[in-house]
Design a protein around this nucleic acid. Structure first.
Length: 112
DNA sequence: ATTCTGACGTGGG
DNA sequence: CCCCACGCCAGAA
């Protein structure tokens, strides 16, 4: 693993796997951490490949608003909220409660 | 090479 | 609060 995969996914996947239990992050935060900057779309897109990597908690990745935008891409639309709820992350109307507190910024946490 | 599409982000009306 | 447009860049057809 960690064999310098030139693939953009690999970078996103590794960061996603670093997301602590019961925490959430945003596409933009990951994109920023990778240096992609504004290309937050690429992050979400890379998450599409996460289907091949069950170790990647895509449910912990939400948009800047804390909305479960990618829930539609899960096995079932309710699966994402279900998983988050199981981790202690309260979700209401596709929106993460206390998102600000649960927000885990890689470029910030990993930078310490 | 060209075109299109995105699980986004930010800003403006 | 809602809707629209632009930027951004990597990969697939």
């Amino acid at each position: 693993m960690a064999k310098n995969e030139s693939g953009f996914f690999e970078l996103v996947h590794e960061v996603a796997k670093l997301i602590p239990y019961g925490r959430v992050t945003t596409y933009g935060a990951i994109a920023r951490y990778l240096g992609t900057g504004k290309s937050a779309r690429m992050v979400g897109w890379a998450m599409n490949a996460s289907h091949a990597n069950p170790e990647i908690p895509a449910h912990r990745v939400v948009n800047s608003s804390g909305l479960l935008t990618g829930k539609a891409h899960f096995e079932t639309p309710d699966r994402m909220q279900e998983l988050l709820n199981d981790e202690g992350v309260l979700v209401k109307d596709n929106q993460v409660q206390d998102f600000k507190e649960l927000f885990w910024d890689p470029s910030k946490e990993l930078s310490l």
